[in-house]
């Protein structure tokens, strides 16, 4: 009987010492409604503060027969420097025109066409590339690189060696497919006190689009007229996401700004209608010196689709 009493006592005591609250949902899921953004968080620790990333705009077109070989070289260079480089393929100009029945896909975008005209690409051989929208003193102050001038690999290598930047730039993007909310947040850390006018430009690109491409490297036995119908187009510009009409994006900084300042930029927009697969979309943020039009920092993020 005593043993029984002691056992009950033990169980009662043990019960007293086992108080515990189990929490299944530590924080409620935010309620989301159409047209209202819940902006994603940016991991401030993961922001690059060590160097300026090299932003390359490749001007190309599906009817450009030499383009695929040069794109392959550019993608190799990107693969070797993927932490330091961002590449966008801008389809514009005569080589990018829709031409039925062989070239039904339209990769043109209003912003791509604006850029094509802005850099006077009609007077340049295609493919051409612009690097950080900047000129290179060691390469005859060239802005546009192509086979007629200097090919772009060497200036990209040079740009990839920089080891400082005035801006840390982070970006996050979420697309709520059912509601159509495309919510983009960018955080900018000013790393040194600077004076000037700077804009933030936000672009949308889509990767790995399968469509036709003229390619000099293939055999006509396999691909009649050398048109590769299952060509994978990489990093294709799908449009500018900023709401304003400027080629350089929205004003971000005007005047002097102290080192250590953080600026948050939020954009509530819609997914460009030409996007085929939202799963393959990326958003690119560019800090552009509005006075010189030079891209001083850039960052790319894969869109998180919900």
């Amino acid at each position: 009987m005593n043993s029984l009493k002691h056992s009950f006592l033990l169980i009662a005591i043990a019960g007293f010492f086992t108080a515990c609250n189990k929490v299944d949902l530590p924080i409620p899921k935010p309620v989301e409604v159409a047209g209202v953004c819940i902006f994603p968080e940016i991991d401030s620790n993961a922001i690059n503060r060590d160097f300026r990333k090299t932003y390359v705009e490749e001007f190309t077109g599906h009817k450009c027969i030499t383009c695929p070989a040069n794109t392959t070289l550019l993608l190799q260079q990107l693969e070797e420097n993927k932490e330091r480089m961002i590449v966008v393929s801008v389809h514009a100009g005569g080589f990018a025109k829709v031409d039925l029945p062989d070239y039904p896909t339209d990769f043109n975008t209003p912003y791509g066409t604006d850029l094509f005209q802005h850099f006077s690409m009609a007077t340049q051989p295609i493919p051409s590339a612009v690097i950080n929208r900047d000129t290179f003193p060691t390469f005859n102050d060239l802005l546009v690189f192509n086979q007629a001038t200097t090919f772009w690999d060497k200036p990209i290598d040079e740009a990839n060696t920089n080891s400082s930047t005035d801006f840390g730039l982070g970006i996050a993007a979420e697309y709520a497919e059912e509601l159509g909310n495309f919510c983009i947040k960018s955080s900018i850390e000013v790393l040194s006190t600077i004076t000037g006018n700077y804009n933030l430009l936000v672009l949308c690109v889509e990767d790995s689009i399968i469509a036709e491409q003229l390619d000099a490297r293939v055999s006509e036995d396999e691909y009649p007229k050398k048109i590769v119908t299952d060509y994978m187009h990489r990093h294709v510009l799908r449009g500018k996401l900023n709401n304003d009409q400027s080629i350089n994006g929205d004003p971000l900084i005007s005047g002097t700004i102290e080192a250590g300042t953080w600026i948050d930029y939020e954009l509530n927009t819609v997914m460009p209608a030409n996007v085929v697969s939202t799963e393959n979309t990326h958003v690119i943020a560019l800090i552009v010196n509005a006075d010189t039009e030079e891209v001083v920092q850039s960052e790319e993020v894969h869109v998180h689709v919900r």
Binding site: A14, F17, T18, A19, C20, N21, V23, L25, P26, I27
Partner: peptide, 23 residues
């Protein structure tokens, strides 16, 4: 052994377990 600690939840945005037990 069983051990349980109690600490008030505080002001966090998270729902914190005030009683945490182990054994």
């Amino acid at each position: 052994s069983v051990v349980s600690k109690f600490q008030a939840g505080g002001t966090s945005s998270l729902k914190l377990p005030e009683n945490v037990a182990g054994g």
